Simulated assay, not measured.
Amino acid sequence: MKLKKLFLFGLIAVLMLTSVACSQGTNDTQATSKDGVTKIKIANYFAEDHPQNVALREKFKKIVEEKTNGKVVVEIYPSNQLGDEAQFTNGVRNGTVEMAITGMGLQTANPKIGAVEWPFLFESYDHARKALNGEVGDEIETEFRKLGVEPLAWTVNGFRVISANRPIKSMDDFKGFRLRMPNIPIFVNTGKALGANVQPLPLSEVFTALEQKVIDGQENPYATLKASGFYEVQKYVLESNHMFSPNVYLMNKKLFDSFDKETQQIIKEAAQESANYEWELLLKSEEDVKKFLKEKGLEIIVPDAQFKEQMVKAMDPVYQDLYKQYDWAKAFVEKVRNSK
């Protein structure tokens, strides 16, 4: 009888250990099949023909699959196929999505991540690229890692412009203007500082809201304005360039750390090459997009020096609040402005 009890206790202990091991395996972020192939799902909110997805297909996917001899397979899910930005970004954090190209939405968890999108911070594309690929980018990448994601490369979404159903040619034209912005404090505060009536909405809902005249306009880079079809329900564009929006390749950190050093290097180099290609594509396409929009009947309004200065000046209270709120803010802004 004692032998039977000991056997039963031993069997139960083995089953419990096996159950724990299986449970741990389920939480493992590296989804490797029986043949040793790892699939990396990449989520993003861009249209399939956006430079971000073109670069992913032509560079990142190709390089990773070729250089790992097919041991890592890349699957691309554009246009919010794996949920909206908040959903798939959180998916990368918890390991349900291996990778994403995302904006600075994680600033809701770590405000410093969003500092690169503060209003009128960068003066040009060259300025932004140099800063992000230098000390400024390194500082933000450290903050990403604290949230369980590995930043692989910086890409460009672009300077943000305002599309509208009526012309905006002065600060007075912002009064009563229902402007969609992402539901992120710095965006909302920037829109309010301009004098607009800010309406936070997910990107996936913007077209319908514009079409049904729930909002008067939205703000995004030119490439998104075209790729998302907003030009079909807008008549004007104010080239405000009020914020610069970068994007970043993020991978679940546990997954990245689980790869051997050689595979990590392949992934990082592929991401950087893909990112470089995306910068080229987007910058080359911006003038084509402007031409396209004009052909579709949209009027592009370039603010004169006085109007631009007034918009910049309107941000003073926003920055003063940021400096009061974060003890690192002033030094960070100075670092960005000295990185030209």
Rank of each mutant, 00 (worst) to 15 (best):
Q320E: 07
G83A: 06
A275E: 02
L255D: 04
F174H: 11
I12T: 15
V64S: 04
T29I: 05
G137L: 08
N157R: 12
A86D: 10
K146R: 06
R57V: 13
G95L: 03
I42N: 01
D138C: 09
M251K: 07
N90Y: 11
S285T: 12
P167W: 04
E150F: 03
E117T: 08
K2M: 11
V20L: 13
T102Y: 04
E269F: 02
Q199G: 01
I267E: 00
K112G: 03
A227W: 01
W154D: 00
G134P: 14
Q30T: 07
G95T: 05
Q306K: 14
M16K: 06
N189S: 15
A164G: 15
A128W: 01
Q24N: 04
E286R: 12
K192A: 14
A55W: 04
R57A: 15
T263S: 08
S163I: 15
S339N: 12
A153P: 15
M251S: 09
A275I: 04
G25W: 02
S163W: 12
R337C: 03
Q212R: 14
T89C: 05
Y77P: 03
I12W: 13
F307H: 14
M16P: 01
I76C: 03
N183P: 13
E66S: 14
F256G: 07
P78R: 11
F88T: 00
N53S: 12
L121D: 14
E211P: 03
M243A: 12
A100C: 09
K2T: 10
I300S: 07
K67V: 09
S170H: 08
E295L: 01
D126A: 14
N183Y: 05
F120G: 05
N90C: 03
K62N: 08
Q107I: 02
Q234H: 02
D304A: 03
K294W: 01
K340Y: 09
Y236K: 07
Q107C: 05
A153F: 05
F122A: 05
I40V: 10
I42G: 02
I215T: 06
Q81G: 08
A43G: 09
R57T: 15
P200F: 04
W154I: 00
L225R: 00
V37N: 04
V14G: 10
E123T: 09
K41L: 10
K290C: 03
N80H: 11
A331H: 12
F9P: 02
